[in-house]
Amino acid sequence: MATLLEDKYEARKAEVNERFEQLRANEEELNRIFAKIYHMEGEVPIKVEDKYVSVARIFDTVEEIPESYKGNKYVRTRRDEIVSLISYAVGCMFGRYSLDVDGLVLADQGAGVADYLAKMPDPEHVTFMPDADNVLPITDEEYFDDDIVGGFVKFVTVVYGEETLEANLRFIADSLGGSGSSREVIRQYFLKDFYKDHCQTYKKRPIYWQLDSGKKNGFKCLFYMHRYQPDLLARIRTDYVHEQQERYRAQIGFEEERLADAQKGDRVRIEKRIKKLNDQLSETVAFEERLHHLADQMIKIDLDDGVKVNYAKFDAVLAKIK
């Protein structure tokens, strides 16, 4: 049955905010009781200030948060709720979570899709299958079949229904902020902000790692560290980076042919696109060389060593943690 994400959000906000007020009321009642027990009525404060209530409180926007809540680390916004939804969706894409069972699913080193299916109540009818090769490409246009935006759109469709898909994507995009179509805003979020939010959530110890060619967005992708295998970088290099380079070359050739016959008004736009594509191609060529060097080493990791130690082994190709 189709569901509007906006309705789900409003219901959650009402539930969370009611819990916030209930906890405040409980704490104030305890203050009254103890003040009476110790004969301190009128001498100690009974009222609990907004910033000291230690459960979540949701506001639609940052601008709506009153000054009295400043300093309360549990305050959240609609964007925070949508970012959490996106994070959960990515977890489902990697098989860390599942729509069919509660809790963690794939959380052991080297786990894969076969392990995921073994934990399903009905392996023949899985609601949402994780990505087969543990690689979710992030590019500024949809170049790959397993593109992360496409995967996220599929997740939203499976969870909330086909009928409400466009309305739900619009709600997500409006919550994130930005201009363009819903899918364009969501793509920009994955390109620019997802990894920053992920690192922040996991206190600079991310479990999804982002390969990043550089500022031109030539090529990015995520992989789940628990599903990492020593041949992963080699597969990314051949199956993704090489393919992306060929696409750039093909598009540059196509745009150069268009430029030859273009009217004056179109030439600037086409030349700008050719420059962008050339910059992205150059960036991916340099990135591929770094990736090749690491891929040949067939690097192994040990989850017991922790994120910091393992992440440093791939420093030349991974996004910087900020």
Rank of each mutant, 00 (worst) to 15 (best):
S213D: 04
D145H: 10
G110M: 09
L233K: 06
L5F: 03
F128C: 11
Q280T: 10
V153Y: 14
D122V: 13
V153K: 15
A316D: 15
F59P: 01
L30I: 14
K264F: 15
R249W: 02
E21P: 04
K70N: 03
R290C: 08
C221M: 13
V285T: 06
A262K: 02
L191P: 01
E288C: 02
R258K: 14
G42N: 07
Y195Q: 06
V101S: 14
E243T: 09
P121T: 08
L294K: 11
E256P: 00
M225D: 04
I58G: 00
I148E: 10
A167L: 09
V101G: 13
E289A: 11
V62Q: 13
L191D: 02
G95C: 10
G265S: 12
Y228F: 14
Y248G: 00
A316F: 00
R258Q: 15
I148H: 06
E288V: 00
L30C: 02
I321V: 14
A319T: 02
V53M: 14
D147H: 11
A312Q: 15
K154A: 08
L222A: 03
E81G: 06
N17R: 09
S54V: 05
A286N: 14
Y189S: 06
D279Q: 15
E18N: 08
P130V: 11
N26D: 10
D108N: 13
V113G: 00
V53L: 09
K8F: 07
E27G: 09
K275Y: 01
Y224L: 05
V16Y: 12
L85C: 06
V309K: 15
Y97W: 13
N134Y: 06
E64C: 00
I301P: 03
A234I: 01
S179D: 14
G161H: 13
Y116E: 05
V309E: 13
E15W: 12
L5W: 05
F314M: 09
F152A: 00
E162I: 05
I299G: 05
G103H: 15
H292Y: 14
L191W: 01
G218Y: 03
V241S: 10
K73R: 14
R183C: 12
L211H: 08
R269E: 07
A132V: 15
E43Q: 14
H293V: 06
R19P: 07
I138N: 03
K308Q: 12
E29L: 07
F219T: 10
Y69K: 02
K70S: 08
G103P: 07
L191M: 14
Y208D: 05
T77K: 01
W209K: 10
L281D: 00
I274A: 00
M129R: 14
S98D: 10
Q22T: 11
E288Q: 13
Y74T: 11
F171D: 07
D122A: 09
L104Y: 12
V113T: 10
T61C: 02
I299C: 07
E18R: 12
K196L: 09
L222F: 02
